[in-house]
Design a protein around this nucleic acid. Sequence first.
RNA 1: GGUCCCGUAGCUCAGCUGGAUAGAGCAUCUCCCUUCUAAGGAGAGGGUCUCAGGUUCGAAUCCUGACGGGAUCACCA
Length: 639
Amino acid sequence: MNIEMQLKGKLIAAVKELYGQEINEKQAQVQITRKDLTGDFTIVVFPLLKVSKKSPEDTANDIGEYIKNNDETVSNFNVVKGFLNIELAADYWLNLVNEIVAQDKHGYVTADENSPLVMIEYSSPNTNKPLHLGHIRNNLLGYSVSRIAEANGNRVVKTNIVNDRGIHICKSMLAWKKWGEGCTPESTGKKGDHLVGDFYVMFDKKYKAEISTIIEEKISEYTPIKDSEDFKATFSALKAKKKTKEGLNETEVEQLKACEELSKYAENNAPLIIEAREMLLKWEAKDKEVYADWKMMNQWVYAGFDVTYKKLGVDFDKIYYESETYTEGKDMVLQGLEKGAFYRREDGSVWCDLSDKGLDEKLLLRKDGTSVYMTQDIGTAKLRYDDFDIDKMVYVVGNEQDYHFQVLALLLDKLGFKWGKDLMHFSYGMVELPHGKMKSREGTVVDADDLVDEMVKTARQMSKELGKLDGYTEEEAEEVFKMIAHGALKYFILKVDPRKNMTFNPEESIDFNGNTGPFIQYTHARIKSIFRKAAEKGIEISDKAPTNVEIGEKENNLIRTIANFPNVVAEAGKTLSPAVIANFAFDLAKAYNQFYHDCPILFEEDENIRMMRLVLCKTVAKTLKNAMWLLGVDVPEKM
RNA sequence: GGUCCCGUAGCUCAGCUGGAUAGAGCAUCUCCCUUCUAAGGAGAGGGUCUCAGGUUCGAAUCCUGACGGGAUCACCA
């Protein structure tokens, strides 16, 4: 039983004894005492005034007196403004430290074969371009959430669905076919995913040019606008105006409609897109040549992704490929059609009407019979549940797809899967740059590989300047640089509430001072340094702190923080939020550095106090390590 | 227009199921390495918690409405 529950129990007993009334959980409020006041836990007496029929002060004093006399862990109490602050005896805290130091994974709940199985999907890249900053947030969140789920006593399967088919990959392939002159990663010296991405960009450029040409040709048929430049300007002006308060007048509505029609016509009739669509059809028909090219180019991309994943320090237990799941999805859709859950339009496309649920109609198969994103997700879900005994499915996907997952849950439900509506969309916010959103056309996309390389470079430079890794070999030092770079990047991204959009400022992310990953890593390294010094001096660190010593304010604060770790892990598990863990790690590191500054450790002359502090250091180091592990960050021995 | 998310210091963010004087970091300005790692510590300035109502002993937190920002409603993924 933890101390908070114990105090709550005593509080309930006190009220019954003193005022003869039973109170419920909600009225029994025990919280951690504010740092600037004396006390360890605080009882809020306001909800009890109706029962006590006394002033807040008198009530608090009554209860304080009772608890002090009836609970030997309570050494004292004080009352401030009607808040009852309970102080616990020093030996209670020291015994707790000894309990914690004896556990390898204090705060974690270990899973066994009967524990729930949670499958967590994250990353889910498209194979037409390299990973960027947005993917980084996804990967780091997914990886951390997996570890958090694991530490909360779940069996976890990390999974990735690679979107390796579809019109997007056909675009890259087509561009490579047309203008690539048979180049390869080897011949160009480019990472495979980057090479394929270049062709995707090339496709887009030429496609846009074709669209402009068509608009130029057809402009007179649709609008009175003279040339395509004017068209672009008018079109975007109209769209912008529509969003404003005043809105559009009748002629403008007409104009916008005409613009939309023309634009849509051009987008659908550009020769390149027609060719890409034909290629997708051929691919679905397993045309030999198309398939061979597809396989080859995908291999390039996978090789590139592997490098990036390694760089980010993430991995997967089971990878699914859309190319292997989409047919399953098609079958499911057709079955749904037979069952009458879906319907077919005259043009042959298959839809689901969700208007009774307040949503729109959703396309499931195109008129040419090819699959869309949704089709694939249905198939993947089916295969996953066939493969694993899944109790909970978590999709780590950006919040721009909230609607998609709302629909997916309904569709799976309609198809008769009992787990359909239970899927969890772990929806996270977008990553923005200080100057706004990332736009590939404006070259403001932050590439994942570049970013990590840049971080490692900075870490290397900084460490060398500080000269703290003297005595390490090149390889050892390089490991630490990578660790610090990871620490900075991961912590920077994971410390913010996943739901919220975040601003990624490259300069701040590379900062190693203050509320950062390296600050926490540094704290760990400091402790380890003390242990090395202790060993030099021949001081052996016991597994038990003496419990008959006084503890000061900084020590008390440190122990209280550590004691709260299990609650933090549980909270993070409930909300699947790495940010909760990150904030905890920072608080702990800060508390330690204050302690370190104020209290001599090896220089302490009183042997008992010295040993108590050393054992305390041990629990801090371990807790920091365990907390950072949940973020996917390692901590160094030296830095 | 419908649905959803967000609004806290100059900037980036914490603030758990309502609790005491709203906290960090960065940036600015002081101080502290002849003690264990200064990637550290101490201090100063900086706030109408977007606004208006409501519930409550008590509201940054819960409810309603407004304002501001974002996402989404594709035969894209």
